[in-house]
Amino acid sequence: MTAPGMVARRLAYLEAACRETRGQLVRIERLIQCRAERITVTAKLRARRSRRRGPRGAPADERLLREHVDRLIFERRDEIAALAQKPARQEHGIAAPGDRKQPVVSQFEHRVLLTCTAIAWTKG
C-alpha cells in the first residue's frame, strides 16, 4: 500500500512533466512558425530580385508559408510525434482509475500527426 503523500508527490510530478511537455510542443510550434516566416520572406525577396513573375498577393504568400510549415514539421516529425504522444500518456496516468477517458489533443498536435501521416503515406 502506498502512502497518500507519495501518491500526491507522484501526481504533482506527473502534472509538472505534462505541463513541461506541452510547453515544449508550444515552443516547437512557435519555432517552426517563425522559421517558416523567415524562409518565406527570404524566398519572396530572392524571387523579386530575379524578376521571376509568379502568383502575387496574400493567397500565394499564405500557400508558400503553409508549404514551408509543412516541410519543417515533416523534417522534425519524429521528435514532434514522440512529444505529441507523451502528454496523452501522462494525462492518462494522472487521471483517476475511474475517470480514464480519451485525452484532449491540441490543434497543433493533431495537425502534426495528420501532416506526418499524409506525407509518409504519399512517399511510401
Score class of each variant (00 low, 15 high):
8 A>P: 00
59 P>N: 06
15 E>A: 14
30 R>M: 03
27 R>Y: 06
24 Q>K: 14
12 A>Y: 04
24 Q>G: 02
122 T>F: 08
90 Q>T: 02
100 R>P: 00
31 L>P: 00
58 A>C: 08
111 R>N: 11
24 Q>H: 11
116 C>F: 08
69 V>D: 00
63 R>Q: 15
121 W>E: 13
99 D>P: 00
72 L>N: 06
70 D>Y: 03
8 A>Q: 15
123 K>P: 01
97 P>V: 04
67 E>D: 14
80 I>A: 02
11 L>V: 08
70 D>S: 11
94 I>R: 08
1 M>V: 05
88 A>G: 14
51 R>H: 13
98 G>Q: 14
118 A>W: 06
41 V>P: 00
103 P>A: 12
18 C>S: 12
47 A>R: 14
18 C>K: 05
37 E>G: 03
73 I>G: 04
37 E>I: 04
16 A>H: 10
61 D>E: 15
23 G>P: 01
3 A>D: 14
40 T>S: 15
77 R>C: 07
59 P>D: 12
56 R>D: 07
120 A>L: 10
87 P>N: 04
55 P>S: 13
26 V>W: 10
117 T>P: 00
73 I>D: 05
117 T>M: 09
91 E>H: 02
19 R>E: 14
5 G>P: 01
104 V>T: 11
46 R>F: 05
90 Q>M: 13
102 Q>C: 07
58 A>E: 15
50 S>E: 15
49 R>F: 10
85 Q>I: 05
76 R>I: 02
47 A>V: 03
117 T>F: 09
